[in-house]
């Protein structure tokens, strides 16, 4: 029996449908500590009393969805790994504001190398403020190396 992932079928069935929504409110002190531990030195990231205090730009990548795959998504056989993260920043994210994070599958694609085919899954989380303005999006890429046919 083939273990090959039918990428076109998965794309057709699952791309661009929001499958997860979580609400998050960032704590100011935690946000400042997050920034400082990364090496940020500007008070707008490290001092909650700064008038322009905001989350550091890469913080959206740390927000967890409540699930990683849409309901009904087939179990993928192979060795899975975290492949990367990308953050698009649109507007500052302010601690203390209730945020809504919506996640969809943004892309599924393949690369083939000497060790076989690798399938990449890209989840995109979009973060909105209470007015519905898009503040940031965070892409999480995971890769599965397919097991060779027996």
């Amino acid at each position: 029996m083939s273990n090959a992932i039918d990428v076109e079928a998965l794309r057709e069935a699952y791309l661009n449908e929001v499958f997860d929504e979580v609400e998050v409110t960032l704590d100011a002190e935690e946000t400042a500590a997050y920034a400082a531990s990364c090496g940020e030195v500007s008070p707008c990231f490290t001092d909650p009393s700064d008038p322009d205090f905001q989350a550091p730009p890469t913080l959206p990548a740390s927000i967890h969805p409540s699930r990683q795959r849409p309901k009904g998504f087939p179990k993928v056989v192979g060795l899975g790994m975290d492949a990367g993260k990308a953050v698009h920043c649109h507007r500052p994210i302010r601690p203390g504001v209730k945020l809504t994070a919506k996640t969809h599958m943004h892309d599924i694609y393949t690369k083939t190398g000497r060790s076989g085919r690798m399938v990449f899954f890209v989840n995109r989380m979009e973060i909105f403020d209470p007015e519905g303005q898009l503040l940031a999006s965070a892409d999480t890429s995971s890769v599965v190396r397919e097991r060779p046919e027996e």
């Binding site: 090496g39 030195v41 492949a83 993260k85 990308a86 920043c89």
Partner: peptide, 24 residues
Amino acid sequence: QGFLAAMIHRWAPKAEILYVDTVF
């Protein structure tokens, strides 16, 4: 990824980061 953004801000304190893409 946070280290990368901090490095940019240390170089250009007024920089507004629009996009950071990282491959692990």
